[in-house]
Design a protein around this nucleic acid. Structure first.
Lengths: 336, 336
DNA sequence: GAAAATCCTGGGAGCGCTTCCAGTCTATGG
DNA sequence: CCATAGACTGGAAGCGCTCCCAGGATTTTC
């Protein structure tokens, strides 16, 4: 650390200092064969002494590999993105990308302009591949995802389109188990608070609910729908109480809305789980801190991000992985 | 859309089709002067017909500008990052970067390996600049931030180091106002639930609390400290009740911990705000949905991200902006 | 001991774009 | 009608790295 060079040293300088050709220097950089012990050593030393770091851009241009993967979150921000759900997904994805030595480009693509930039990013080969999440039915982002020639993996299936590669949680199964859990507890008048109906995840969770009800010989309630936020859950619960005063169980499509339902029930003077039992979905932190604590369907959120990224990495590497459905399970707490 | 070219067209192909030189084509691409109307038109047409998109990497290599900014979140994931706080910050930063046509590289740099990759990313000039957040005292990430030659802006000042460029919220002022708010409500035995003491934000909020107490001629309580999570707030509140059974007001360093405090108070049979008034900090969504709803200090979180990114953009552009402190204000709700 | 196989080595041609520069062309002004 | 500033134009030199390839050195094989 004697002198601080103003410009980053280049591979040519390393080669010169080591007394070898640039090709040779490049070879040791990439751990390629055909370099004698001595030269390899000399190059390593020169690299160390010069504090050389290969220029990613130049390498990217030559190899046609960027070393970057995009994570696209299509939903309206901040509403969707503020959900801790995506924070978790990002943590998982980030870890998996790191294992493959890829960097993470985060693209929030709700606005028109954001979408145009995303499209250019993909067409300009600014990334090696992309993960798509939170896509709604007829979302223009879906077209971008379908038309790109780059490897693409979906985290959660989009509504109305079955992609070749995706990772998803077992939403139908989880919802069914949640509903069955309520039925097992002796509830018979079980309602549901649904998410936005233009998302696949809402539809699947609703389907699971219906299946369980019908299997038990019961009539499913028409779902109240919210937008995955706490207040919308409270509103939906209030409405449910009006339409079905005798309701004794509620399955909410996520924990936020379930928390809202708990609040609404408390406001209406109904005891939980005494009068009405409640089950959520996601198993976010909030499920542990509501009162009563929330029975919910656990899904491995970080894994979802992790596996989505791993799948993308494999796709980029030329493999052809298979879609993946991650298991869900009921976590019983005090609300049932 | 007649034929789908397998390879992306290059600028040479555009130039050839338009019957001009590559230089000329490049000029129209960059809206540079010295191209005749006709040729400019011809190039535009060729671009359209070929569906040409300039290769970002090649451009980056030639111009030495990546078109990418890094957002580094240093804190332990998922704990820190799962906080909706950072999701908001990202939304703001993303919007500001988009205005400057920069992409966002998200770097979670808690682990050793992540840090090494970050360091290489910066040294290899893989980004044009970086924003640093959630840095703790003696955090190794701080060294990386200080040693890079790239433009760097801090979102929130790190403990023990005053950077040249940062954007921060007025934590001291906000904490003082929060405490004064409690005092105005007639509380005299006001305690504080603090965050981790190795973060600057915790220290500043604590300082604001002390200042307000001392100014009012009252003895500040020794702070209970948590880690910004709800359970830690509940635990701290419980402890506070043991040490100071007569406590009649509490200022928590963030809303999550304040929510925990509310829960602990309810568990202890204390009425809020009747027996104990509570104020939080951040004004996250959670503050609206606790019961009672939470009086808190509002800080413009999205703006924090937005301004941090804007400052970075200016720095990259060669300006020398000044540090920025964003205002905070008390939002009175039902907990006081 | 000669031929063949194997390993090193550095030259050079890209990757796709920007930008400098020298040369050409046009429109003025005297 | 000629000199001259000024706007065009395309050739060519990079940006920093990878990788093919031909030539030379070194072994291996019979």
């Amino acid at each position: 650390m004697t002198d601080v060079p103003r410009r980053q040293p280049t591979l040519d300088e390393v080669a010169e200092r080591a007394g070898v050709s640039r090709s040779a220097a490049s070879r040791v950089l990439n751990n390629a064969p055909h370099v004698s012990r001595d030269k390899r050593e000399a190059v390593r030393r020169a690299i160390r002494e010069l504090g050389y770091v290969p220029n990613t851009t130049a390498r990217a241009l030559a190899t046609r590999q960027r070393g970057v993967a995009a994570l696209v979150i299509a939903g309206e921000t901040p509403a969707i993105f503020a959900d801790p759900f995506y924070a978790q997904v990002i943590v998982g994805a980030s870890a998996a990308l790191e294992e493959a030595d890829l960097h993470l480009m985060l693209c929030l693509a709700a606005a028109e302009r954001s979408r145009r930039r995303l499209e250019e990013l993909l067409r300009a080969r600014g990334v090696d591949g992309a993960m798509f999440m939170a896509i709604r039915e007829n979302d223009p982002v879906l077209d971008i995802a379908r038309e790109t020639e780059l490897p693409v993996v979906f985290g959660g299936r989009p509504a109305g389109f079955e992609p070749s590669w995706y990772v998803d949680a077992d939403n139908v199964g989880g919802a069914r188990k949640a509903t069955e859990h309520l039925l097992d507890r002796g509830r018979r008048r079980v309602g549901m608070i649904c998410g936005p109906l233009d998302t696949q995840v809402s539809r699947e969770r609703h389907r699971g609910y219906r299946e369980a009800m019908i299997l038990a010989g019961l009539e499913p309630f028409a779902p109240e729908s919210g937008d995955f936020t706490e207040p919308s859950g409270a509103a939906a619960m209030a409405e449910l109480l009006v339409r079905h005063p005798g309701v004794d169980g509620v399955f909410a499509a996520n924990d936020n809305m379930a928390a809202g339902a708990l609040r609404a029930l408390r406001g209406a003077g109904r005891a939980v789980p005494g009068d009405v039992a409640v089950v959520g979905f996601d198993d976010l932190d909030i499920a542990r801190i509501t009162e009563p604590s929330l029975t919910t369907v656990h899904q491995p959120i970080q894994d979802l991000g992790h596996e989505t990224a791993r799948m993308l990495v494999r796709l980029i590497g030329g493999d052809e992985p298979s879609p993946l459905i991650l298991p869900t399970r009921v976590v019983a707490r005090s609300s049932t």
